[in-house]
Structure formats: structure tokens, C-alpha cells
Computed example of a mutant assay.
Amino acid sequence: MISERPASASRPYIAAALAVAMSVGCALPAYAGPQTLRDGLFGDRPAPGRRATPPVARYVSQEGDAFILDRSQTRAFMKFEGSPEVWVLRPHPAPRGDVIYKNDLGEPMLRATRLGGLTLFTSQRPGGSPAAFAGGGNALRLAPLSPQVLLERLAQASAKATRAARRLIPFEADASPASSAVVADAAIVTAEAVVRLSRDPDGRNLLGRLRKVKLVEGKKPAVALHGSEMRITVSPDDGLAGRPSSDRIMQAAGAH
């Protein structure tokens, strides 16, 4: 149920950012529920012979990919070291009591066994690579942002996308105080998608037409191309799960 916003919060403020040389801040992330996802899937006790891993933990794959997996909330989140994007994962039951975590395109990213094992799936290793527990980590959550910080994040996203496209790509947003955090995160994720598009032959064709990124509020996350404008829709009430992933943005651009 959506709580009523004060009158001052109901008036969206418009933030427009042009390319500005700024360092990109780290992504933050989302909301906790009364029961952890790990408890809901595996129960509150480890399997015999296994030590329980913390609900927020760092893992390293056999190939050296390090990431944080946060299963302390009503949704699961993961973030690779060195990347600003936080991935929203949806659990799906698998044989032998395993759980497969998929992204918003339905692609598997992790497989967790009932005994505590973890397998990471990447484009380089689509067959999966074992990942080992490597210590604790910090929960991935979104934090409220002021209008000024939102403007700075939009400028950072614009600067990153502009460097990748080698041409100015302004980022604009229709946002309210309630949506500022997810809009800022969506901007950074969109810039990450633009960088990835710049490395793809089909993606470079799109970037030749792209002139602006617009972020707006809506009922559910979406991405669409309207002529030379890429429109990203975010759902503020869904937190990190209320914006599309870079994979989904690339798919909408026809390059994934």
C-alpha cells in the first residue's frame, strides 16, 4: 500500500544533467522484510556437516570473479567488485532442492545448493563456475538522496555515457523525493549499459542515434526507445527492483 506523500513531495522536481567530469560513486541498495530470503528458502539451520554462511557474504569464483551476495532481505541482490551495478535476483526452485537465481531477463546468474554450494554463471562461463565463501559483506541498500546529490549522480552518469559514446548524452529525470534514490541508481545502471553498448557492434549503431536519456516514474520498471531518446521507467516503491538491469536495457536496444 502506498503511503500518502506530503504536498511538497508530490510535486516532481526536474533534474537535467549534462556531461560533467566527476568520479562515479558506489551503488548502494534496498529494503528488508520480516523474514530473510535465505531462511525462506533453506530454513534457519545449516545442512548437516556444513557451517552456516552469513546472509550477506562475499564470494570468489574459480575464475577470480568476486561478488557480494545479499540474501538478508525479501529479495536477493548481488554486486560484482569493480562494478557499480547491483543485480536483482529472483529465486526459482531447481532439482534436488537447489535454487536458481535469475535476473530480470530470466537468465540464470547463480545456483545455490541445499548443502550451501554456490555456482556463478557468466557470459564467459555459461556452464557455471564454483564460487567459494570468502567472508562477510555489507548489505546492499538504497539510501535517500537530496536533490543536489541526485543532480550529481545524473551528471556522473551523463559523463560516463558521453565518454563511451564520444558524444554528449545528457541525462534528464522527472523525480520526486520518494524516487530520487532509485532514479539515481537507474541512471548509473543506464550509463553502464551505454558503456557495454559501445563495445558491441550492434550497440554502436544504436549509440549513433541516441541523443538523450530520460528517467521517469511509473508503475513498473521498463525501458523503451522513442526516436533518439531512451526512456527508463522506475517504480519507486520497489526499491532496487524498481529499475531495469543493464542487460534489459541492452536487450531493448537490440544488442543483447
Rank of each mutant, 00 (worst) to 15 (best):
S179M: 10
V194H: 04
R243P: 00
K220Q: 14
L151K: 12
L240I: 15
S72T: 10
L225R: 15
V189N: 10
L215F: 01
D247T: 04
G218M: 11
A155C: 05
P29K: 09
L210T: 01
R111F: 01
R58Q: 15
G136W: 01
A15L: 15
T190S: 14
G137M: 06
G135H: 05
R243N: 06
E63I: 02
R51P: 01
V234K: 07
E107K: 13
K220N: 06
G136S: 13
Y101V: 03
D202S: 12
R38P: 00
L69M: 08
E192Y: 05
T74H: 08
T190D: 08
L89M: 12
I232T: 03
V216W: 02
P130G: 04
N205E: 15
S83W: 08
G106W: 08
G82D: 15
G40D: 06
L142G: 02
D98P: 00
R204F: 01
R125D: 05
T53P: 00
G135E: 13
E4A: 06
H92G: 00
I169M: 11
P236Q: 09
S245E: 06
P144K: 10
L140K: 07
G203C: 04
L18G: 14
G116S: 10
S235C: 06
V213Q: 05
G254E: 07
V234C: 07
A139W: 04
D174T: 09
R141N: 11
A222S: 14
L207Y: 05
A181T: 09
R163W: 12
R11G: 09
A161P: 01
A222H: 13
P221K: 12
T122G: 04
R204C: 02
Y59L: 10
L207Q: 09
L37F: 01
R163S: 04
T119P: 00
I2T: 14
V88I: 14
A139Q: 06
Q156N: 09
A155H: 02
A16C: 05
P221F: 04
A143M: 15
G40F: 02
D185I: 03
L18H: 13
N205Q: 14
G82I: 15
P130D: 10
M22K: 09
A191E: 11
R96W: 09
T119S: 06
F77C: 01
L197P: 00
I232S: 02
L225Y: 03
D65Y: 03
G40E: 11
L37T: 10
T162A: 04
S235K: 02
I188M: 13
S235G: 00
S198R: 12
T190L: 06
P170A: 11
G242I: 15
P170N: 08
A16K: 12
S61E: 10
S8G: 05
F133C: 09
Q124N: 12
P34Q: 13
Y59A: 05
T119L: 06
F121D: 06
L140N: 03
D185R: 12
P55Y: 03
R114P: 03
I2L: 09
T119V: 14
C26Y: 03
E229A: 12
A32C: 09
F80S: 07
A255F: 02
N138P: 00
A94Q: 05
A52R: 15
S228C: 00
A52S: 12
Q62H: 08
Y13P: 00
C26E: 13
